[in-house]
Computed example of a mutant assay.
Amino acid sequence: MQRIGIMICTARRPQMLENCLRSLTSQEVPDSWQVEICVVENDQEPRSQERVEAVAAATRFPIHYALEERRGIPFARNRTLHEAIERKYDWVALIDDDEIALPGWLEAHMRFIQEQGADVSYGAVTKNFEKQPPDWWYPEIPSSNPAGMVLPRASTNNVLFSAKLIQPPAELRFNPAFLYGYEDLDFFEAATAKGFKIVWSPDAVVEEYVPASRVAPKRLLGWSRSSSAAHVQVSVLRKGYLKSAVKFSIKGLRRLLGGVFGSALFYLPAKLGSERAVYRYFKSRMRLARGLGNLQGVLQKPYRYYEVIDGQ
């Protein structure tokens, strides 16, 4: 009997969470699998518990609820690992509350694990935009990796892994230092370093709903700033503060100056309606945001992007 736990972290998005849960409870699985779902709400009070219990009352899969009051993504993710160990799961799947699992999602993950002799299956994410991102933002390009390709890392938005990663002797956990991003990449990079095998599983697909608020210019620039700060934090933890501070101070100042110059140069033409100027203006604003993020990382004051919740 294979015991599989599907874990979801959520915060103040009850409708998205319900949509996610219903996509999971509709998965077809063999009788030899014992599947359970666990929701960890990262909040001071149980805002979504009633919604979870309503879905649980109408499904064949047991659904457990836990409240993690310490605010921060690493704390919520580590609570899912704690629940997985307590419930003695053999396999742990992670999915975000703003995603829905397409039919055959769980079966595809398990099939790739078995076929590839892997410890981790990393699946595909397609995005359903309420509003298309602006032209100056990074385009969405589907992965061209061949099925079964070995990867150096994964993220937590669509992944299934062996409980061996979180049991002795490996005992991997999400580093609580990464309050503002990169905690999932760090976790799976550590798994690779310990010899666990991660494979690409394109048939295990989830669809992520992206509300219009998340592709507003302010939020996109905020993400760039937060991501750049997080990369400094990674470097500090792995290479030491002094070496990282020198590197990212220079990079941050160069980006800052270039971003300020470009923003000033293209501001007026952009306001006058030139499409090319709008594109160049926001590219400069992105460079400025990355520079500010680098410097905030050096000062160890990360940008708090994830404190704003998009969707409902």
Rank of each mutant, 00 (worst) to 15 (best):
164 K>M: 02
168 P>G: 05
216 A>L: 10
21 L>P: 07
196 F>E: 03
249 S>H: 12
233 Q>R: 15
94 L>Q: 12
216 A>P: 05
253 L>H: 13
162 S>P: 07
69 E>S: 15
102 L>N: 04
154 A>E: 03
171 E>Q: 13
97 D>W: 12
91 W>Y: 08
157 N>W: 15
223 W>H: 10
63 I>V: 05
221 L>R: 09
58 A>Y: 11
204 A>Y: 08
207 E>G: 03
186 D>T: 01
255 R>T: 03
245 A>H: 10
56 A>V: 01
124 A>E: 08
215 V>P: 05
80 T>P: 07
250 I>E: 06
306 Y>F: 15
91 W>T: 04
96 D>W: 13
289 A>H: 12
190 A>H: 14
283 K>A: 06
111 R>K: 14
302 P>E: 02
65 Y>P: 01
164 K>C: 01
310 D>Y: 13
161 F>S: 01
155 S>W: 15
293 G>P: 06
224 S>P: 06
3 R>G: 01
181 G>R: 11
86 E>L: 14
170 A>Y: 11
260 V>G: 09
51 R>C: 04
312 Q>L: 13
238 R>P: 05
92 V>E: 00
12 R>K: 14
76 A>P: 00
63 I>W: 14
142 P>T: 04
8 I>R: 10
117 G>H: 11
159 V>C: 08
201 S>K: 07
297 G>M: 04
304 R>T: 04
225 R>M: 11
7 M>Q: 08
269 P>Q: 07
190 A>C: 09
162 S>K: 07
219 R>L: 07
189 E>I: 04
211 P>F: 10
240 G>V: 00
50 E>G: 09
157 N>S: 15
244 S>K: 09
121 S>K: 07
158 N>G: 02
211 P>C: 03
22 R>I: 04
218 K>L: 12
226 S>N: 12
295 L>T: 04
39 V>Y: 12
263 S>C: 09
73 I>A: 13
239 K>L: 10
245 A>M: 06
112 F>N: 05
230 A>S: 14
191 A>C: 04
291 G>K: 11
65 Y>V: 04
